[in-house]
Design a protein around this nucleic acid. Structure first.
Lengths: 148, 148
DNA sequence: TATAATTAGATTGTGCACAACTTAATCGTC
DNA sequence: GACGATTAAGTTGTGCACAATCTAATTATA
């Protein structure tokens, strides 16, 4: 199936541009918080579960230390986050929210609301779309487990 | 709706990771063609319509010259593409396929087949997913036209 | 027809994504 | 307890994405 080489007919292209354009929507919303989109994702994880190490963070976001190390350094410069080396296992570095980073959560609460307002999407459609995206990822994971 | 700050419940996160993981699927497939994913998209456009200028290319891919200029430079180093300054309007630079770049198309024909095989997805689901992504983009465009 | 505004493309700078590699700590096995 | 294997985090290098700025060509307008 789908052997055409036409750009618009390839799901990869639609995913790629949809993701880019949605990220673009976030940019002006996140600018007042001094966060890039990726930094926002890191903050989301920390607001949900404080005091996690780089490894756990990377697992949640599917990002490796090469991406996260400099990114977290910038969050530290903003005084949103701090790093403490774990005492039980000295390889681990535990991330925790500073008071400033914690307080930012209140402002961030409005972000999802703003975004879904902009998308102008009803709950049922939203959920259906989420499920499709999760399904795409499941298929990718299945393949990797099958032969990757 | 959807005011939760949970990572997994945000459509942006699902789109972001799905796009990244699908791109990761392409990497080993495109490696033998010596192409990155973005370079592959540029080649797709050129195989579809040769002799277009940077502006048209950027419009198709929603990429600006800051991204495309260095990317196309790399495609030139691979001898896949060449640039010729247009005579009618000397600001324009027309991109065309070299014989090598043209010949590569044959190998590339197999890429979409391989990918859908890996995704293990039936035609109807594929089409439904494409429509979802196109709809998300349409909503984003609607918003931008409304007030962006 | 001067000149102001617009346009195409390139360049610079910042930040993300990821592969490959390094260092240091921990674990497993003997 | 010694030592090879594994693991967490960081660093380096490449390439993409995009904002801001620059140059040169074209178009619009006074």
């Amino acid at each position: 199936m789908k052997s055409s080489l036409t750009l618009e007919q390839q799901i990869c292209f639609q995913l790629y541009t949809a993701s880019k354009e949605l990220t673009r929507l976030y940019r002006p919303i996140l600018a007042p918080l001094n966060l890039t989109y990726s930094q926002y994702l890191v903050m989301l994880v920390l607001w949900e579960e404080d005091n996690i190490d780089m490894k756990q963070l990377g697992d949640r976001l599917t990002l490796d230390s090469g991406t996260l190390s400099p990114l977290v350094k910038r969050l530290m410069q903003l005084d949103y986050v701090e790093k403490i080396r774990a005492t039980d296992d000295e390889r681990r570095v535990v991330l925790s929210l500073t008071p400033v980073g914690s307080a930012l959560r209140e402002q961030a609460e409005e972000v999802p609301l703003k975004v879904s307002g902009m998308l102008n999407i009803d709950e049922a459609t939203y959920v259906a779309y989420m499920e499709m995206l999760i399904d795409i990822k499941a298929r990718l994971r299945d393949f990797r487990e099958r032969e990757g």
